[in-house]
Simulated assay, not measured.
Amino acid sequence: MDDTQQITEDEFKRLADFLYRRTGMVFTETKRYYVERRIIERIVATSSRSFAGYFAYLRSETRNEVEHLINAFTVNETYFYREDHQLACLSSDLLKERVTAKRPGDTIRIWSVPCSTGEEPYSIAIWLLENWKDVDAYDIEIVGSDIDTRVLEAAAEGIFGKRALMRLSPELIERYFHGLDDERWQILEDLRQSVRFSRVNLIETKETRPQGRFDVIFCRNVLIYFDDESRRIAAENLYDNLLPGGFICLGHTESMSRISPLFEVCRYSGAIVYRRPQELRA
């Protein structure tokens, strides 16, 4: 297929519907150029002669090509200590409330979803080591999940460039990374081993439920890509993945109050977060 050829309106709708059913992400005509560029790349990569040929291959193929297609449409813009006011709230307020019902040595579970190439879950680990005085008193389990299998592989490898590290001080970079060359740094193996990575689709209960329940979930800047129905499904899945009294942190442009009535709004000095109530509502 010539990479200058455009897909038809009907083909665009079929593809958008396929992606929506698989991921919950909504692609409208305003994203047409973005969609066309990526679908043409997959058509060429699979040696298909046309969109019709590729779509038939996609629907009959194993999970591999579906994964490749989904990977092509995910957005992975992130860096260390992004929205660090929420990290400050985590160490000063959220964990203080969560440990009231725990004993030293108990497990505290934190979930970063989507985690992209790992900057967020590693940021949580570094922040707690630097800023939470009780970090050694509890067994802290950090899980990073994403729908994009490529970024999960990169996250596990833990190699980052200058832009990803731009908000970290030279002291933190020296303490938690080792340089590979002038442009790349790898996070220390101990920290890489402290984070577990898994593939998860937020609108698939069969994928979210096995992750277990968490004390705190960071789910930032992904629900904006969903429509109302997909947001509701994702919110219900996230609710089920929280322990009673557990917290969820969204991106600064997102509001759980507009999505689901299941959560309580909690306002702290540094952030607005959402909590699963201690008691189930009638």
Score class of each variant (00 low, 15 high):
Leu168Gln: 13
Thr107Ser: 15
Gln186Ala: 04
Thr117Trp: 00
Lys162Gly: 14
Ser145Cys: 12
Asn131Arg: 13
Asp182His: 06
Ala156Lys: 13
Tyr138Thr: 05
Glu153Arg: 14
Glu174Pro: 00
Asp146Thr: 08
Trp185Thr: 00
Ile173Pro: 01
Ala137Asp: 12
Asp181Gln: 07
Phe160Glu: 06
Leu128Cys: 07
Ala125Pro: 09
Arg103Phe: 07
Lys102Cys: 07
Thr149Gln: 15
Ser112Lys: 12
Ile159Cys: 05
Tyr122Pro: 00
Glu153Val: 13
Asp134Phe: 06
Glu120Ile: 04
Asp134Asn: 11
Val113Gly: 13
Val113Thr: 15
Leu172Asp: 04
Thr149Phe: 13
Ala155Gln: 08
Glu119Cys: 09
Asp134Gly: 12
Ile173Glu: 01
Trp127Ala: 02
Asp182Ser: 07
Asn131Glu: 12
Lys102His: 08
Pro121Phe: 02
Arg109Pro: 08
Asp136His: 12
Trp132His: 04
Ile126Lys: 04
Ser116Val: 13
Tyr122Phe: 09
Glu183Pro: 03
Pro170Val: 04
Leu168Asn: 11
Asp134Ile: 08
Asp182Tyr: 06
Thr117His: 02
Trp111Cys: 10
Val143Ser: 06
Gly158Tyr: 03
Gly118Asn: 03
Ile159His: 04
Glu174His: 03
Trp185Gln: 01
Thr149Lys: 15
Ile173Gln: 01
Cys115Lys: 06
Ile173Tyr: 02
Tyr138Trp: 07
Gly179Asn: 05
Glu141Pro: 11
Val135Cys: 10
Tyr122Asp: 01
Asp134Ser: 11
Glu153Pro: 05
Gln186Lys: 03
Lys162Ala: 15
Thr149Ala: 15
Glu174Cys: 03
Ile142Thr: 11
Ser145Pro: 07
Glu153Trp: 09
Pro170Ala: 08
Arg175Glu: 06
Glu119Ile: 08
Phe160Gly: 05
Ser116Met: 09
Glu141Gln: 15
Lys133Gly: 05
Arg150Glu: 10
Asp146Met: 03
Ala154Asn: 09
Leu165Thr: 11
Val143Tyr: 04
Leu152Gln: 12
Thr117Gly: 01
Leu128His: 10
Ala101Trp: 04
Arg150Trp: 07
Gln186Trp: 00
Gly105Arg: 04
Glu174Gly: 04
Arg175Gln: 09
Glu120Ala: 03
Glu141Trp: 11
Leu152Ile: 13
